[in-house]
Design a binder for these strands. Structure first.
Length: 477
RNA sequence: GGCGCCUUGGCGGAGUGGUUACGCAGCGGUCUGCAAAACCGUCUACACGGGUUCGAAUCCCGUAGGUGCCUCCA
């Protein structure tokens, strides 16, 4: 495996070399659990799930850490607003409720659970240790306004801006009102002193007084806690590049850690060529998507674009994805059916074609990898048309292997609805009976009856396909 | 002001210095009692203007339009 990745810090495609051969440590910035997951969260999680699966498929031992930020300004604000609205929800209850929503959404589209999913509130001591090191070595200071705030001293760190290739002097000054204790407007908070009116449960003891962590310090603490002071890959959404990742990098390196070797950033989701945002009211929530498409179709759609390009959500996108998935599914079912009972049944080798491997190794070129899948499907169908079962078995195995790697195998047990109920068996019995009646009618050249049965089934949402080996029925959509 | 990205055929969406992306949709055909599915064939391209080159949609410069970050954000 010679994987090339686009490193955001270098701005170039580079060969990936793990710190330890055969192992890879990946840290991905997870959500701030302040409100329900939307399409962008799903896309981001999916991108790193694809990367992780590709490493695993190639025999790597993957340590995949995706955090949950369960304490921040927005969570406290939303909690306070819930109280003002008459249905108070403590900040920690709100954060946990939303975290469960995220987990459910991730699970629905087949995002594998991380190796570990640390919460920010469980790593406060580690954050404080980094802050203390920064204060001790002069890269951070306690505000002299008595607030208990601690800031990172950007001017003291010559490399500040190295991730996003910006010079400190060129940056627009931050305009937030909390800058009174800062020596420079571009300094950012490592620790926020407890304020009047904020819940006591959101304050921790620290050398600088009661308070809570700033936004960026948690990721420096959690990534190095679980992956070491130097680790392989750090990923996240493009919108986190600045200031979040820039600040993470600055504070970790200033504290003496080597930090991430490779930086990956996934593209965002836009609606009508504009970034999705709450203020524009154009958010597409995970719950809406999950309600409007099969999970495997949703996963296919969200993962079919290249991870670094913007994903433009538009009307009809899911229908197109559904058509593509159905095509793959049709071949897998047809091939499996045809090979059943022959000496080729179960002989499929689960190998991926070389072109697929090359695509994935080229900065995770999933669009091309999917093109290989479709090409293999076409050849597989042609082999079945020609009754070349050896070839068909080989291609069938390849499609299973490729779709499994990407997590979009429509026949995978993970997509099973799980209710193989009596009702389902009863339906099967009844449909089989009607299909059998239709076959009898067709043999007697009573096509009026045969077509009537087909129409009736069609109205009930069941389609019939006649094949050389008999009629096959399936539920639509 | 600083740092980026995008502009491909009817739609979505890759890629590349000279050769079919792929999917959806359309058209013609094969198969079928008719369909469906499948297969075969096929039509619509590379924002604009320069430059480099034997050759650029692909590299460079510029123009236009769009868009992201610099403030919470996947």
């Amino acid at each position: 495996m010679t994987l090339k990745l686009h490193d955001s810090k270098l701005g170039a495609l580079v060969d990936f070399t793990p710190l330890v051969p055969g192992q890879v440590g990946i840290y991905v910035c997870g959500p701030t659990v302040q409100s329900s997951p939307h399409i962008g969260h799903l896309r981001s999680a999916l991108v790193y799930d694809q990367l992780r699966r590709w490493f695993s498929f190639n025999g790597y031992t993957v340590t995949f850490i995706r955090n949950v930020t369960d304490i921040d300004d927005k969570i406290l604000i939303n909690s306070a607003e819930s109280a003002a609205a008459g249905s108070p929800e403590p900040w920690w209850a709100l954060a946990y409720r939303v975290e469960l929503e995220f987990t459910a959404a991730y699970t629905a589209i087949g995002v594998l659970p991380p190796t570990y999913e640390p919460r920010a509130t469980a790593s406060i001591p580690e954050m404080q240790a980094i802050i203390q090191r920064l204060v001790d070595n002069g890269h951070a200071y306690v505000a002299d306004d008595g607030t208990g705030d601690v800031y990172f001293d950007t001017a003291s760190w010559a490399d500040y801006g190295e991730l996003t290739h910006q010079k400190l002097d060129d940056m627009a000054p931050a305009t937030d009102s909390d800058s009174r204790g800062k020596r420079d407007v571009r300094d950012f908070a490592l620790w926020k002193g407890h304020k009047e009116g904020e819940p006591e449960t959101a304050a921790w003891v620290s050398p600088w007084g009661q308070g809570r962590p700033g936004w960026h310090i948690e990721c420096s603490a959690m990534s190095t806690k679980y992956l070491g002071t130097q680790f392989d890959i750090h990923g996240g959404g493009l919108d986190l590049r600045f200031p979040h990742h820039e600040n993470e990098l600055a504070q970790s390196r200033a504290a003496g850690d080597a930090f991430a070797n490779y930086w990956l950033h996934n593209g965002l989701v836009s609606i009508g060529s504009q970034k999705m945002s709450k203020s524009l009211g154009n958010s597409v929530f995970a719950s809406e998507l999950i309600a409007s498409a099969r999970p495997v179709v949703l996963r296919y759609y969200l993962g079919a674009n290249h991870y670094r390009s913007t994903l433009e959500y538009h009307e009809g996108a899911l229908e197109e994805a559904d058509a593509a998935v159905s095509r793959i599914e049709g071949f897998l079912e047809r091939g499996t059916r045809r090979l059943a009972g022959t000496r080729f049944a179960g002989t499929e080798e689960l190998v991926v074609p070389e072109e697929f491997r090359e695509a994935m190794d080229d900065d995770l070129a999933v669009p091309q990898a999917i093109a290989v899948i479709h090409e293999t499907v076409r050849r597989g169908n042609a082999a079945l048309d020609d009754e070349d079962l050896a070839e068909a078995a080989s291609l069938l195995g390849q499609v299973f292997a490729m779709t499994d790697v990407l997590g979009i195998n429509p026949l995978s047990p993970e997509w099973a609805t799980g209710h193989d109920s009596g009702a389902e068996r009863a339906l099967g019995t009844l449909v089989e009976r009607l299909v059998s009646d239709r076959e009898t009618a067709r043999k007697g050249r009573d096509f009026a009856t045969a077509d009537r049965i087909r129409d009736e089934l069609g109205q009930a949402g069941i389609s019939i396909e006649d094949t050389p080996t008999g009629a096959h029925w399936s539920l639509d959509g």
